[in-house]
C-alpha cells in the first residue's frame, strides 16, 4: 500500500481502519437538531445539534446550549434522522426548479426550512400539508414564497418536533439581565491594564 505523507491521514489511522473492517459504533446518545426563535416577532432558525436521550431532554439541553446569552422566545428540537434533506444546488439555481408544483395537499403537517445562502442557517419557511417529504416540497413550491433561489430545503413532520409550550416560555424571563454570563461583564482586560499601569508607576 502506498504511503501517504499527509499527517491528517496518519492521525486517522485510516489504513488500519480499513484492514480491521468497520469501526465499532460510538458510545454516544443520538443527535437532535435545534431550532431557535430569538424574539417573538422573528422566525425559527437552525442553531446546532445536541446529544440527548430523547427530544424533551434535547430541549432541556438546547435551552442552556443555545440560549445561555442571547434572548430567546422558543426552541424546537427534532431527532436528526427525522429530517428529510433535499438535494443541494449552487449559485442561482433553486432546488425548486426540479420540483413539480402541486396544488393537491395531503393530511400530514410538515415544516419546511430553507437555506438561501451557502454557510447560512436553515430558516423556517412555513408549514404545508402533504403525504410524504417529497410531496411536501411539491406543495411548498405552490404554497410558500420560493421567489428567491433556495439552495437546500429541510422537510420534517410537525409531529416529530418537540416545541416550547406557551407557559414554559417564562424560563427565559430573566435572560436579558444575566449580563454576568458574558465574559465582557467582568472587564478583565480593563482590570489587567489598571494593574499593569499601577505596577509600572511604583516600579
Amino acid at each position: 500500500m502506498e504511503k501517504v505523507l499527509d499527517p491528517r491521514f496518519q492521525r486517522l489511522d485510516i489504513f488500519k481502519a480499513q484492514i480491521n473492517g468497520p469501526t465499532e459504533k460510538l458510545d454516544q446518545l443520538p443527535t437532535f437538531e435545534v431550532f431557535v426563535l430569538l424574539r417573538e416577532a422573528g422566525i425559527y432558525q437552525h442553531e446546532g445539534i445536541v446529544h440527548a436521550p430523547d427530544r424533551e431532554m434535547a430541549f432541556l439541553f438546547a435551552k442552556e446550549q443555545f440560549s445561555r446569552r442571547q434572548t430567546c422566545a422558543g426552541i424546537w428540537t427534532i431527532e436528526t434522522p427525522n429530517i428529510f434533506v433535499s438535494p443541494y444546488s449552487e449559485n442561482k439555481v433553486s432546488i425548486y426548479d426540479a420540483v413539480q408544483a402541486s396544488a393537491e395537499t395531503g393530511n400530514e403537517p410538515y415544516k419546511i426550512f430553507h437555506m438561501l445562502k451557502r454557510g447560512k442557517q436553515h430558516k423556517y419557511a412555513g408549514k404545508v400539508h402533504a403525504n410524504s417529504p417529497e410531496h411536501a416540497l411539491q406543495v411548498a413550491k405552490a404554497a410558500l414564497d420560493v421567489s428567491k433561489p433556495v439552495l437546500n430545503a429541510w422537510v420534517a413532520r410537525e409531529s416529530d418536533f418537540f416545541e416550547t409550550s406557551e407557559e414554559d416560555k417564562e424560563i427565559w424571563n430573566t435572560l436579558p439581565e444575566k449580563t454576568f454570563r458574558e465574559a465582557i461583564d467582568y472587564k478583565g482586560q480593563a482590570k489587567i491594564d489598571a494593574f499593569l499601569a499601577e505596577n509600572n508607576k511604583t516600579s
Binding site: H51, L60, E64, R181
Partner: peptide, 13 residues
C-alpha cells in the same frame, strides 16, 4: 456529557 455539563453549570451560576 457536554450538554449536561453546560446546563448544570449554568444552573449553579
Amino acid at each position: 456529557l457536554l450538554e449536561e455539563d453546560i446546563a448544570f453549570a449554568s444552573m449553579a451560576q
